[in-house]
Simulated assay, not measured.
Amino acid sequence: MKRINSNDIAQLAGVSRSTVSRVINGYSNVPEETRRKVMKVIKEHHYYPLISGQLLTGKKTKTLGLFWLGRAAIARDSLTSSYFMHVIDAAAQRGYLVLSCILDNLTEKHNINYVRKIFMEGRIDAGLFVGTSNNEPLIEELVGLDKIVGLFDFYHENEDVPNRLSVNFDRDSGEATIDYLYALGHRKIAVIDGDLSRLSCIHRHESYMRGLIKHSLPLQNKWMAYGGIVKESGYAAAKQMLSACMDDLPTAICANNDGVAFGVYQACEELGLRIPEDISVIGADGHENGKYTNPPLTTYSFDFKEMFASLVNRVIDTVEQKDNIPQSDFIPGHLVERASCRKIELL
C-alpha cells in the first residue's frame, strides 16, 4: 500500500504543498482555520513526515521526548532537576535515548508549534510531559493523532485512552497527614493549598478536607490559603494568613509540598513564631533539603525514581505494542517524621 505523502495531504485539504509544510513545521503565517483543516486530514490519514531514510523502513527512533514545563523551577530546585536523571536512567535501562525540551508553558503558540513539529516529524517514538495542567488542549490533540503520550501528575477518571499513560501521587496523602497531626493532639490545623489546575494539588486539597471532616475539625477560612508550588509563593501565602490571625493561630500547618513548607518556615521566622513550639509544619514530596532545615521538616515522601520508572516503562511498552499495559499508576507515599511537628497534651 502506497504511503500517503504531503502532496496527497495538500490535495485532500485543498491547499498547496507549501501550506502543508508550513503547518507541519509550525510557521505562524498560516490562518487558524487552514491549520485546523490540514491537521484534520493529517489525523484522518495518520500522516507524519519521516526525518530519515531509516524511518522509511518502519524502524523506531528508540528516542523519547521529555517536555518539561517550567524553566525557572529546574534552575532553583534540586528535586525537580532530579526528574531528568530518573527519566534518562529508566529510558537507558530499556535502550532508549531522551530528547529533552524545556519550555515555559504550553499556552504560547510558538511552544505549541515546536512540540507539534517534534512529534509530526517522527523524531521521537513517544513524549513525556511534566508540569502540564490536568486539562491541556495540546495533549488531547496529540492523543487524537495517535501519538503516544506519558504524563506525570495527570489523570482523567474512567477514560479508556491506551496511548495516554500517566503516573500520579496517591490520593490519600492529605488525609494521612491530618491523621498524623490529630494523633499528636492538633485540633486547629491550617492548610496551604497548591496550584489547583494540577491534579496532585487537587487531590491533596480533597484529601486534606476528608481528613478534617473525618475528625470533626473546624474548616476555618482564615486557616486556608493558596500557596502555589514553590517557596516564594508559599512564603507569601503563609505570611498573609498568619499575620491576619495572630490572635487565633492554628497549631499546625499542612503545606501542599515541601517547597511551600520552606516558605512557611521563612514566614514564621519573620513573624517571630517558633517551629514546632508555636506552630508545627508538615510538607509533602520528600525534598532532600527537608533534612537540613531548622528544625528538619516532617514530610509525606514519595519515591520519584519509582514514579518515573513506572511511567517510562509503560510508555515504552506501548511503543513496543505489548499487551495489557495499565494506563495509570498511583504511587503510594509514606510519612517521614522529623522535628517540625510536636505533640500537644490535650486537657
Rank of each mutant, 00 (worst) to 15 (best):
Val20Arg: 00
Val41Asn: 01
Leu165Met: 11
Val264Cys: 12
Glu136Thr: 11
Gln220Ser: 13
Ser100Gln: 14
Leu217Arg: 00
Arg76Gln: 14
Arg274Asp: 07
Asp153Pro: 09
Ser21Ile: 08
Asn163Val: 13
His215Phe: 10
Ser78Arg: 14
Glu269Val: 08
Val161Gln: 06
Glu157Asn: 10
Asn324Tyr: 13
His186Thr: 11
Pro295Met: 07
Arg35Ala: 12
Ile9Glu: 07
Ala267Trp: 02
Gln11Glu: 14
Ile275Asn: 06
Ser280Phe: 10
His215Trp: 09
Tyr292Ile: 06
Met224Arg: 12
Gly234Val: 00
His110Met: 08
Val38Trp: 01
Gly95Tyr: 12
Pro326Ser: 06
Ser6Gln: 02
Lys117Leu: 03
Thr19Lys: 01
Ala339Trp: 00
Leu64Gly: 08
Gly234Trp: 05
Ile325Glu: 03
Asp193Lys: 15
Ile118Val: 14
Gly259Leu: 01
Glu277Val: 03
Asn256His: 09
Met1Glu: 03
Ile148Arg: 10
Ile74Val: 15
Arg123Asp: 00
Phe152Glu: 00
Ala126Met: 09
Arg17Ser: 13
Glu269Phe: 07
Ser197Met: 13
Asn135Gly: 09
Leu69Trp: 10
Lys40Val: 04
Leu50Gly: 05
Arg338Tyr: 05
Gly174His: 08
Val161Phe: 03
Glu136Gly: 07
Ser243Tyr: 10
Ala92Val: 05
Ser28Asn: 04
Gly228Leu: 11
Glu269Leu: 14
Glu288Tyr: 11
Ala309His: 13
Tyr96Arg: 07
Pro218Gln: 09
Asp248Ala: 06
Ile148Cys: 10
Ala10Gln: 01
Tyr155Ser: 07
Asn221Leu: 06
Ile24Arg: 08
Leu56Gln: 13
Lys117Cys: 09
Lys43Ala: 06
Met209Pro: 01
Asp285Trp: 02
Ser310Gln: 15
Ser197Asn: 15
Asn111Phe: 04
Asn113Phe: 03
Arg204Glu: 03
Leu151Asn: 10
Ile229Met: 10
Ala339Ser: 11
Pro296Met: 14
Val167Lys: 02
Val30His: 03
Asp89His: 05
Val230Gly: 02
Ser52Lys: 00
Ala237Thr: 02
His46Ile: 02
Trp68Val: 14
Thr19Arg: 01
Lys291Gly: 06
Met307Glu: 09
Val20Met: 00
Ser52Asp: 13
Ser197Glu: 15
Met120Gln: 12
Ile189Ser: 04
Arg164Leu: 13
Leu165Ala: 12
Asp248Pro: 00
Asp104Pro: 04
Ser82Ala: 12
Gly70Ala: 10
His186Val: 14
Leu212Tyr: 03
Gly286His: 11
Asn25Asp: 01
Asn113Arg: 12
Pro137Ala: 07
Gly283Lys: 00
Glu175Ala: 11
Gln327Leu: 11
Pro295Arg: 04
Tyr180Asn: 11
Leu56Tyr: 08
Lys214Ser: 12
Glu140Asp: 12
Leu55Cys: 03
Ile112Lys: 07
Gln327His: 09
Val23Met: 02
Val149Pro: 05
Ser28Tyr: 02
Leu249Pro: 04
Val161Glu: 12
Ile316Tyr: 07
Tyr265Arg: 08
Ser81Gly: 11
Gly95Glu: 08
Asp172Tyr: 14
Gly150Val: 12
Asn135Gln: 14
Ile213Ser: 15
Ser100Met: 15
Asn29Thr: 05
Ser166Phe: 06
Gly58His: 05
Arg342Asn: 03
Leu335Tyr: 04
Lys305Ser: 02
Glu277Leu: 05
Ala10Thr: 05
Ile331Trp: 04
Gly144Ser: 04
His86Ala: 13
Asn135Ala: 04
Ile275Leu: 11
Cys245Ile: 12
